[in-house]
Design a protein around this nucleic acid. Sequence first.
DNA 1: ATACGTGCAAATACTTTGCAGGCTT
DNA 2: AAGCCTGCAAAGTATTTGCACGTAT
Lengths: 151, 151
Amino acid sequence: MNNSSNRFEQMSYKLKSAGYKLTPQRVIILQILSQRQDHPNPDSIYATLKKQLPTTSPATIYKTLAVLKNLKEVLEIQYSKESNRYDGYNPIPHPHIHCIKCKKLSDLNLFVFDQLSEEVQKQTGYQVHSLNLLIDGICPECQLTSQEDDK
Amino acid sequence: MNNSSNRFEQMSYKLKSAGYKLTPQRVIILQILSQRQDHPNPDSIYATLKKQLPTTSPATIYKTLAVLKNLKEVLEIQYSKESNRYDGYNPIPHPHIHCIKCKKLSDLNLFVFDQLSEEVQKQTGYQVHSLNLLIDGICPECQLTSQEDDK
DNA sequence: ATACGTGCAAATACTTTGCAGGCTT
DNA sequence: AAGCCTGCAAAGTATTTGCACGTAT
């Protein structure tokens, strides 16, 4: 059993345990979230979902994402300009790097990250809820193709 | 001469050198940005500006902030839910901690932060543009007052 | 039957844009 | 005179909300 299947089972279980119903819409949303590792935004999830259930509305996705976020079964990566992206494959908080050209959003391994929360808590006295590290840049591929539009 | 005055001079100089005009609106915006250390959002800047120039519109603030951001004379702290906040007092990228109760946004000193950009660049090959570390939590004061609303 | 979920549409919030008029150099 | 800047209003985008209907237990 691969991680996608595990994630699907885990999310389904969590939803049901918390008293939520596993509707056809939600099943598909869970499938999408457990499989995709490209951190889709609501609109992208909507596009896929609409193919299988054409009557679905975006509101359903937003509502389900909110539930999953509260259950910590999906990680929300917040943007101010573009819409949020969601990681259901690996919902444990981790830093990301975002290419501002091709919009790709990738995981980033930083061994300092996991200690940060506790360190900040100690240093500031804040009760830390979430720690968002988001890096914007240009990925190696886009660096090649963007040489011509440099001034 | 204190840092606020320095910042005001520096921002004025940068604007003029880059060919922008120093209009009355912009003078006041620069004053606000150079003095306030609470990381105001556009609306808060607007409220102050409106007192001195009642006909000012929010668009003027957004446009001026965009210019200053490009000149790197103001640091934009991005949110997805609330509006952006701006640091003109210390425009060099640095991490922040945000209280989700009282909305206070404070600077955070993390000695690891300054090395991160280069480390990420090496590790990923990305050309790093900006590194945003934003921590959400509850500040010590709000922890005291919020005990009663805990479930 | 009761409560939850869905889909639609309207509302909200923040920010950007187009444009006409004004001011500065 | 030319160009930049402002203020207004409209448009744009992302997300949330209210509500009536449907469905599952």
